[in-house]
Computed example of a mutant assay.
Amino acid sequence: MLSFDSCLVSDALERLGLQQGIAGIIRQSTGKRIFGAAVTVTLARSDGTVHKRHLGTTAIDLAQTGDVIVVQHTARDDCAGWGGLLSTAARAKGIAGVVVDGLVRDIDESEELGLPVFSRGVTPVTARNRVSETATNEPVTIGGVMVMPGDYVLADGSGVAVIPHDRLDEVVATARSMLAVENGIRAALARGVPISQAMNETYETLLKPKS
């Protein structure tokens, strides 16, 4: 899957009538593309209760090597929903990366660790006393897209795409066929074919739903 980018996967999802890529969540650290099964976290505005476990720690403990932590952090837009100590633990666990629908902090530390973190922005403001975890490995909504535990997440410099776990083979086959068409266009351009001819109706109909 890492040979496909998020744009191609988004197109394949759209062609199959599934929810396409997520806008606005961008890569904040490293230049890496990630792919893995989702372990989800839900955050909510804190009610003042002091919790025995910090947010995200349960998900890290549950995650397997190569998984992606996905955090729904939409209750507040003035604090982080992920930070450096979590990144340190995630990196040690072999987690592929982290996707947060909200803000994160300690992004320089994540960069130094080599852990890809994707979010809507960054802030130095802590989550403590502001947000708390309400669920781990339950369905979350990220950028309007439902993510179930075990769904597959692909993220890179263009954004994030989520593949339902039971549709992976279908999405891969569709993406592969679409990539073949795009590579044919690239080859034509390399031969000097004008782009107005190379990107003809074949390209324009690539998103036509599969029958």
Results as ranks from 00 to 15, higher is better:
Pro194Ser: 03
Thr134Glu: 12
Leu154Pro: 12
Val122Met: 14
Gly83Glu: 08
Val104Ala: 12
Gly83Arg: 05
Leu103Ser: 13
Ala161Ser: 15
Gly56Arg: 08
Ala96Asn: 01
Pro209Arg: 15
Ile26Glu: 04
Val104Asp: 09
Glu170Gly: 06
Ser158Met: 11
Phe118Lys: 11
Asp67Lys: 07
Leu113Arg: 14
Met146Ala: 07
Thr58Gly: 01
Pro164Ala: 06
Ile25Ser: 05
Ala90Ser: 08
Gly83Ala: 10
Tyr203Met: 04
Asp108Arg: 13
Ser3Glu: 04
Ala135His: 15
Lys93Pro: 02
Gly94Asn: 14
Gly150Asp: 12
Arg186Trp: 04
Thr141Asn: 05
Gly21Ile: 03
Gly66His: 00
Thr205Met: 03
Gly143Phe: 08
Arg105Lys: 15
Gly157Ala: 13
Met199Thr: 00
Gly66Trp: 01
Thr49Arg: 07
Leu55Lys: 06
Asn137His: 08
Ala90Pro: 02
Lys32Asn: 08
Gly24Cys: 12
Gly102Glu: 09
Glu201Cys: 08
Asp5Lys: 02
Leu18Val: 08
Ile69Lys: 05
Leu86Pro: 07
Ile142Glu: 10
Asp47Ser: 14
Ile95Lys: 13
Ala44Leu: 05
Asn200Asp: 15
Leu8Lys: 06
Thr174Met: 00
Ser10Met: 00
Val39Gly: 03
Ser119Trp: 04
Gly48Gln: 01
Ala23Ser: 12
His73Thr: 02
Arg186Met: 07
Gly144Ser: 00
Lys210Gly: 09
Val140Leu: 09
Glu109Lys: 10
Ile25Cys: 06
Cys7Phe: 10
Pro139Val: 10
Ala155Asn: 11
Leu179Asp: 13
Val140Ser: 13
Val140Arg: 05
Ala175Met: 09
Ala63Asn: 10
Ala12Val: 07
Val70Phe: 04
Ala187Trp: 05
Leu18Cys: 12
Gly184Ala: 06
Ala59Lys: 06
Gly97Glu: 12
Glu111Leu: 11
Gly56Leu: 06
Val131Tyr: 11
Ile26Asp: 01
Ala155Val: 11
Gln72Val: 09
Met178Tyr: 02
Asn137Met: 12
Ile95Pro: 09
Val100Pro: 12
Val122Arg: 15
Ser29Pro: 01
Leu16Trp: 08
Ala188Cys: 06
Ile163Glu: 00
Glu204Ser: 08
Arg191Glu: 15
Gly192Trp: 02
Lys93Ile: 14
Asp61Glu: 07
Arg176Leu: 12
Ala188Ile: 05
Arg53Pro: 04
Gly31Trp: 00
Gln72Ala: 13
Leu154Val: 13
Ser158Arg: 14
Gly121Thr: 02
Leu168Pro: 11
Ala188Asn: 06
Leu55Tyr: 05
Leu189Ala: 01
Gln72Arg: 07
Asn200Ala: 10
Gly144Tyr: 03
Val171Ala: 04
Gly36Tyr: 03
Glu201Lys: 13
Gly121Ala: 11
Ala80Met: 01
